[in-house]
Design a binder for these strands. Structure first.
Lengths: 112, 112
DNA sequence: CAAGAATATATCCGAAACGGAATATATGAA
DNA sequence: TTCATATATTCCGTTTCGGATATATTCTTG
C-alpha cells in the first residue's frame, strides 16, 4: 500500500479537502461533523471524503449509523518527503540542525 | 506572491510535471531539453511547463530563442510546510533531531 | 530579407472533476 | 414494521485537463 503521489497531491489540491484534513488532524470525525463548516451539500462532502479515501489519506470505521473518518499519516508523509527532497533548493546553509529548527518553528505557526 | 496551494498541489499531481521538477532541481533547462525524455509532443510539454509556471514553481528567462526554465523553491517549500505541519501524526517521539535525521536520510534515498 | 530553430498559441477531442438535486441504502429506535 | 438519522449513489450540466495537430511568433544567421 504505497502512497500514489498522483492521487495524494491531487486530493490535496482542493481547499475543502485540505480543511477536512486539518480538521481530522485533531481527531476522528463523522461525515456530518466534517460537513458542518461548509456551505456545500452533504453528498458533495461525501464525495470529497471519498477522494481522500482513495488517496489513502483517510480511513473509516463503522459505528452505528456513522462512519467515522480518521487521518492516515503515510500519504502525507510521502508528500512531505517528495517535496522535502528539494530542501536543498531553499537551504543555503549546511547546518542541517539549525535549518530544521527554523523550518519547524515556522510550520508550527502555520494554520491551514 | 504567496504560493497558492491549490495550484501548487495540482501542479504536482501529474507525474510528467514531477519529473520536470526533478530535472530542474539539477539546473536550468530549455523546453527542448525538458521535452526530450518524454514521448509527448512539444506543445504538450509547453503546457505542462505553463502549469508549473502558474503555480510559481518555475520561472523563465530569455536567452536567444530559448527560454530556460528555473525551479523556484518557495512553492515547494510551502507544500512541504503544509504537509509537514502534520508530522506529529507519524512521529511518536519528541526527539526532533533524530526524527529529522531519519526522515532526511530517507528522502535522500528516494528518486522521483 | 529569407530560412531555420525554439517556443507559443489555437483548436479539437475524450475523459475527468466539481457541485447540486434527487434518490437510495443502512442502521438504530420506537 | 415504521420512522428517523447518517451516508452513499446516480444523473446532470459545466468546467478543466491532458494530449494531438496545425499554425504562428520570435530570434538567429546567412
Amino acid at each position: 500500500m504505497k502512497p500514489n503521489l498522483d492521487r495524494v497531491f491531487s486530493a490535496l489540491a482542493d481547499p475543502t479537502r485540505r480543511r477536512i484534513v486539518a480538521r481530522l488532524a485533531r481527531g476522528e470525525a463523522t461525515v456530518m461533523e466534517l460537513a458542518a463548516p461548509f456551505r456545500m451539500t452533504q453528498p458533495s462532502v461525501s464525495k470529497h471524503i471519498k477522494v481522500l479515501e482513495r488517496a489513502g489519506l483517510v480511513s473509516r470505521s463503522r459505528h452505528a449509523q456513522t462512519r467515522p473518518c480518521r487521518l492516515e499519516p503515510a500519504p502525507l508523509r510521502a508528500a512531505m518527503e517528495w517535496t522535502g527532497s528539494y530542501r536543498m533548493l531553499w537551504e543555503d546553509s549546511f547546518d542541517r540542525l539549525s535549518d530544521f529548527l527554523d523550518a519547524n518553528s515556522q510550520t508550527k505557526k502555520k494554520g491551514q
